[in-house]
Nucleic acid binder design. Sequence first.
DNA 1: CGCCCTCATGAGATCGATCTCATCGATCGT
DNA 2: ACGATCGATGAGATCGATCTCATGAGGGCG
Lengths: 347, 347
Amino acid sequence: MADLLSVAKLAGVSRATAARAFSSPELVRPETRHKVLEAAHRLAFRPNNVARQLRAQTTKMIGVMVPSLDNPVFAEQLQAMEVAARASGYSLIVTTSEYDASRESEIVEEMLRQRVDGLVLTIADADRSEVLAKLHREVCPYLLVYNQPEAADIPTIGVDNRAAVAEATRHLIALGHHRIGMVAGSLLQSDRARLRYEGYRQAMCDHGLTPRPLIEMPRHTQAELACLEPELSGHDGLTAVICTNDLLAISLIGELQRSGRSVPGDLSVMGFDGINLGHCLYPSLSTVEQPRVEIGRSAVQILLAMIRGETPQPLPLPHALREGESVGAPPTSRQVLVTRNPQRNTP
Amino acid sequence: MADLLSVAKLAGVSRATAARAFSSPELVRPETRHKVLEAAHRLAFRPNNVARQLRAQTTKMIGVMVPSLDNPVFAEQLQAMEVAARASGYSLIVTTSEYDASRESEIVEEMLRQRVDGLVLTIADADRSEVLAKLHREVCPYLLVYNQPEAADIPTIGVDNRAAVAEATRHLIALGHHRIGMVAGSLLQSDRARLRYEGYRQAMCDHGLTPRPLIEMPRHTQAELACLEPELSGHDGLTAVICTNDLLAISLIGELQRSGRSVPGDLSVMGFDGINLGHCLYPSLSTVEQPRVEIGRSAVQILLAMIRGETPQPLPLPHALREGESVGAPPTSRQVLVTRNPQRNTP
DNA sequence: CGCCCTCATGAGATCGATCTCATCGATCGT
DNA sequence: ACGATCGATGAGATCGATCTCATGAGGGCG
């Protein structure tokens, strides 16, 4: 590949002038510029970004780490980030951590070596993370996404998970549900999971209802009906569940239907995330929507501001309760049973 | 950030030795190495990959361009690529083209400037693409994914779209369907779309059935029932449709159910891609599965081989007909109508 | 007419690591 | 004991573009 020097020679100018013809054309006489571009064309020259980055001490690259791309909530956010970054002349280096702490650490280390201008991370648990400790000592701007650390000085963007699930729970209660469960994937060691359960617990208690223990599924994004079945029957069987993510909710609905149950007839199911696909299903998914596109777009904007040396205040973004067809009133046959329940809430 | 020279000074060795302590530790006496690492630690030194890349003339980066990450078929492939690349010490620069030809061109140009070691691309239409023309003149190894160009000399990995849809069509025919339609998104200008329709047409003709015109939806991944409705009623109404992607199929099933129809009772629906979510739904999605993980993994392996200077022969990967619950026998009430149909195929 | 300023360009240093080649002491073989 | 070999290290060039500073031509103005 031809370099600037050979282009400069062919055009009969110095390296400096040839460089200017590309990076700041206004400094070069149009005639000269044309000679340079012509020479560049003849030699199939293409500026070498690596050299530019080394000299300029900036890569125009953002390092992104998400747990997995198999979950659309991350893919959709990443899509938005890519568009926003490209619009500002930045590229994304994308990595997946699989929620693995040691991998998180390696990935961030590698990206720092790559001299990315900033990092956008979604980590497993923002409250106990080696990655954050490392970044704390570094100068590289970074931003967490979807996480919700307890420490206030960690720049983060995402929704208020506790409030969001609390609202979802109240929504179900308002529809007449009393026996509401919460279904989670296999990864309980996350700041979000803790806060979501806490939101559920709080809302239940506030209404004089008994929160149930978390129902844990063996996989993170696919429900096993067998794990839930014991909770469904009997006089205190659940009439509604909140799932910690949409994939879990969707697969749970599928399993319930396959077992001959009706959603929301026999069980109301609420998701969390608001992935696009939820709209399209029948029954459509009731869910707590995280504004994935807005989150992705803002993440890039805020990070770029940090890179420019500003100190923007990342606001928590609003969640939205999106009502779909997977949630309805509790079954009436069951509602009779409610009266046998300790909590005697008038129907 | 400290550089190698300051580390070398602190450790009392030359720059060369300090560099060796990192990149080829076996060449350095253990005692010396420890001194260097100790000094590096004290100075919070981190090797600068940009400088290394410039000197070594290799970035260990792969440029990836997919149409969109909102479709899990790409996200799932990308997930597999990321894992495979990382395992071989490579990073991914990820971009999305939105099927926009000019964007495709810009993106590839930018990645070439970035001196990626290779490119993995999914382009809109491999048979008329400026990008391919450009790459043809370049030395950068590249590989198409999911595309199926007519030209034989373009390295590509993916399934045989024509054969895949033909097989799906035959499957429906074998179940007794005669009036089968094909539903596509709004982007017909793609090599895959053409071949998929061609496979459908061929299979229909081979069985003496009349292929229908493509039913085009206004959006690429979401079905509008109104576009399909005219084809459903009447004495020659469809009993089965093949959708060009799973998202289209899934949303179509949702719309059909919402309108009170049963799938597959009233209409059998078959998808294409095999995204993970299809398994979980009820009815589960019958689809032509593209081995997305295998495709992603192989794409990286083959590209790395090309980077090493080998000339691997990318084989077309096998598709698989995945039978789900969204396809069944045609409704019997309709089957009576079949006899009024021009094609008289005995049941 | 001469001074100063602007504009276009060139020379040379620089970003940070790596590669080649040279050097020097120690070990080995006969 | 002496030349050969090996292992560890250092000096200096190099990757390709950009930045700073210097230079020189040309124009405006007193």
